[in-house]
């Protein structure tokens, strides 16, 4: 394939990766930014979102579009409920201590993965995309659904941005993130904000997963890579900066796609990984970091 079209293809692929990554990372960024805890189970919530989506589609069997829309509603709610439960039963009792939380969320990750394995099984299963068309470009064909994913991700991110900056709940979240002690003094129910943020973060991961499941398949180990990538994106972007998180997702997604054009695949991954590490070495607080980590 000629260089131009190849680059276009790699850029498109990178954009799809960035779109899903941005959503997943946005969820983690909120949890990390507001609660200051490393939630190792974030990838497990992502995986759970995908599995619930498959389950909804399989049970409902009402045609691809309806199945998908139902999954888009039910899956985040179900995952949010699990997150609330985990927050109430475990994290709150640990007082959100960063170190104990790592152990507890590793435990949670094991539990969720094993339950998924026992109920859903070890297979990778697809959900049919809600729309079935292939965009035939002069050089190659491209999945129309993947383009839809990019659009949907932008819509969700705009909604989150609106919610954070224009609503009362968003204000409370930002206040808690800025200084939880002062927020408490101003009668903001910090505990409930924490619970809400934790659930909302998990729900964003689930939305990302529902979007991805017609492209990849639901599998009980699928959460590990999104977890690592989300963490990377959140830190590169700069802790507490949503703008930074989104930009970092775009940079990482696109660089992964574009670097693959020039090198053999595994070497491209190594180079992309090292470049991202060096960004942080040069700018230790991330691209838009205002808070010290």
């Amino acid at each position: 394939m000629d260089f131009g079209p190849y680059l276009l293809l790699a850029t498109l692929e990178g954009a799809v990766g960035a779109a899903v990554l941005a959503l997943t990372a946005l969820g983690l960024s909120l949890v990390f930014g507001v609660m200051r805890i490393v939630n190792v189970a974030h990838g497990a919530f992502f995986m759970l979102g995908a599995i619930v989506a498959w389950w909804v589609a399989d049970t409902l069997a009402a045609g691809p579009a309806l199945n998908f829309l139902a999954a888009l509603v039910i899956s985040p709610l179900a995952v949010g409920a699990v997150a609330v439960l985990a927050e109430r039963l475990v994290l709150r009792r640990l007082n959100y201590n960063p170190e104990s939380t790592i152990v507890a969320t590793i435990g949670l990750l094991y539990v969720i993965e094993q339950v998924a394995l026992m109920t859903y099984g070890p297979d990778a299963r697809p959900v049919v995309a809600p729309l079935d068309f292939r965009v035939q470009l002069p050089w190659f064909g491209y999945s129309g659904y993947k383009l839809l994913v990019i659009g949907a991700s932008i819509v969700v991110m705009l909604a989150v941005w609106w919610g954070l900056t224009r609503t009362r709940i968003g204000l409370m979240m930002r206040a808690t993130q800025f200084d939880s002690e002062t927020a408490r003094a101003f009668a903001i129910p910090v505990d409930r904000v924490y619970g809400g943020v934790f659930a909302f973060g998990a729900m964003l991961a689930a939305i990302g997963a529902v979007l991805v499941v017609p492209i990849q398949q639901a599998h009980y180990l699928m959460g590990n890579d999104p977890l690592l990538l989300s963490f990377i994106v959140v830190i590169i972007g700069g802790l507490g900066s949503l703008r930074g998180t989104v930009l970092a997702a775009v940079i990482i997604g696109l660089s992964d796609g574009i670097i693959s054009v020039f090198f053999s695949p595994t070497l491209a991954k190594i180079i992309a990984t090292l470049i991202v590490a060096m960004i942080l070495v040069i700018r230790p607080k991330g691209l838009f970091g205002t808070q010290s980590a």
Partner: peptide
């Protein structure tokens, strides 16, 4: 050169 979570991510990468 980095600290805290940035150190965590750089070592991870």
């Amino acid at each position: 050169r980095t600290t805290g979570v940035s150190f965590m991510i750089v070592t991870l990468m």
